[in-house]
Structures are given as structure tokens and as C-alpha cells.
């Protein structure tokens, strides 16, 4: 059994207004494992990912990363091993391709470098080589991100996630704003890079067929609870009927 990389224990979250997003979620993510979370809108997928990221504060429950609680002082040091990919890419559209990738290193360089936007040479070389890795070889990296297609933008989002050499990538519906063809390509890219660099992925998805292709394990959520948690090869229609009503 591979080591447990990240574990969520008894996570509960109720938003103001009484919407229960997480109702006691327990989840373990192992090294070098790709997990897809399925569920209809409002099932709690996003909240789960955001709570790991620290963007949502849990009411109760704890999150452990390599057996350390992801809290307070530990948070920022452990955070550097966790990267994120977003549904809307969350890139700075008026900035260049290269600087968007380098943003991944934001908390690792000194203040004056941020102030004058002078990134270390080594990071710049790494960013350019990552551009190649995400399939954008030969792209003009001084181009503004706003001029790129959705698929290209998400590839840059992936490059930004990879620049910190993470151990796990969290992805909140990374392909839901892309067309199916591009979505498939992006997921394939994610899977290949993850396997190559031994990165775990926790990814929420809408499309079942993508989850089957992409993930090692599929977790089904409904009303803030985990309904099933099994290998993607053993996923049956009866399982899906439990989460999509």
C-alpha cells in the first residue's frame, strides 16, 4: 500500500444561510494516485477542494498533509507542495504567458524581485521548459494570455501548477469551460505529467466518461457526503445513479 499523502478527516462545513456543503467527509489520497470527484452541482466538490486550499474554513474536521495538520504555521510551508488548477484558469489576462507561469513561484522569491518583476533566471528557464512540457512548444511567451484559446490558457494554468514541483495538484473542474475535444487533451496531459513526475491529483469533474479515462479512483459525492469511493475500473451504472438523481 502506498503512503498516504493527504487525508481529510470528518470535514464539515455549513455556509451562512444554512447550506450544508460538507457533512462529515473522510478521504485519503495516496502517493502518485489520480482521484476524480464526481457529483452534481452543489454536491460539495468545490468546497472540499477549497477547504484543502485554505480558501474555505472548515467548521469541524482536519486536513493532514504527510501526517502534518494543514494549519497555521505549517500551512504555508506545506502549501508549497500543493498546486492548483482552476475552472476559469484564474490567469492574469493582461500579463504575459511567462509571467503567469512564474506566478507559481510568488511566495518563493524576494520582495524586490516581485516589485520590479525580475524573476530569477533559473525560474525563467524552468518556465520555458514547462511550456514545452504542456505542449506549447515554440509559443511566444511574451504574448498576453488574453489572446490565447481556452485550451492554451489551461495548459498555462498547468504549467503554473507544475513550476513549484508539487506533490499533489488539486483541480476544481479544470475542463468544464472547454470543449470536449480540448478537455480530453488537457486531461490526458494532466495524467501523463502526473505519472511522469509522480504527482497525485485530486480533481472534480462533471463528465463520467472523463473520470473513467482519467482517474485511478473515483469518489462520488452527493449532499456533502461521499457516496462511493472505488477504483475507476469497477465503476457501475448503479453507483452513478446514487449521485445523479
Amino acid at each position: 500500500m502506498p503512503n498516504i499523502l493527504l487525508s481529510v478527516k470528518n470535514a464539515k462545513k455549513t455556509y451562512k444561510g444554512g447550506v450544508t456543503a460538507l457533512a462529515g467527509v473522510n478521504l485519503e489520497i495516496h502517493n502518485n494516485e489520480i482521484i476524480a470527484i464526481l457529483g452534481s452541482s452543489g454536491a460539495g466538490k468545490s468546497t472540499l477542494i477549497k477547504s484543502i486550499l485554505g480558501l474555505v474554513k472548515l467548521d469541524t474536521g482536519k486536513i493532514f498533509f504527510k501526517n502534518n495538520a494543514l494549519l497555521g504555521k505549517n500551512f504555508s510551508s506545506l502549501r508549497s507542495s500543493i498546486s492548483t488548477i482552476y475552472q476559469n484558469f484564474n490567469l492574469v489576462s493582461r500579463s504575459s504567458v511567462l509571467s503567469n507561469i512564474l506566478h507559481g513561484k510568488v511566495s518563493k522569491v524576494s520582495s524586490w524581485r516581485i516589485l520590479f518583476s525580475i524573476w530569477p533566471k533559473a525560474d525563467q528557464y524552468k518556465a520555458v521548459s514547462l511550456l514545452e512540457e504542456v505542449g506549447l512548444k515554440g509559443m511566444n511567451y511574451n504574448k498576453r494570455v488574453e489572446n490565447l484559446s481556452g485550451g492554451q490558457q489551461q495548459r498555462i494554468g498547468i504549467a503554473r501548477a507544475l513550476i513549484v514541483s508539487p506533490e499533489i495538484i488539486l483541480a476544481d473542474e479544470p475542463v468544464s469551460s472547454l470543449d470536449p475535444e480540448t478537455a480530453k487533451e488537457i486531461l490526458k496531459l494532466l495524467k501523463d505529467t502526473a505519472k511522469k513526475n509522480k504527482i497525485s491529483i485530486l480533481c472534480s469533474l462533471h463528465q463520467v466518461e472523463f473520470a473513467k479515462l482519467f482517474a485511478d479512483r473515483v469518489v462520488g459525492m452527493s449532499n456533502g457526503k461521499i457516496i462511493f469511493d472505488k477504483s475507476s475500473k469497477k465503476l457501475f451504472k448503479s453507483d452513478l445513479n446514487k449521485i445523479y438523481k
Binding site: L53, R79, T84, N90, L91, V106, S107, R160
Partner: peptide, 11 residues
Amino acid sequence: GPQDALIALGA
């Protein structure tokens, strides 16, 4: 969106 991305990176 981009601000969230950098908050999550601990900036």
C-alpha cells in the same frame, strides 16, 4: 480569480 490563485499559493 487570479487573486484566489495567488492566495492559495500563500502569497
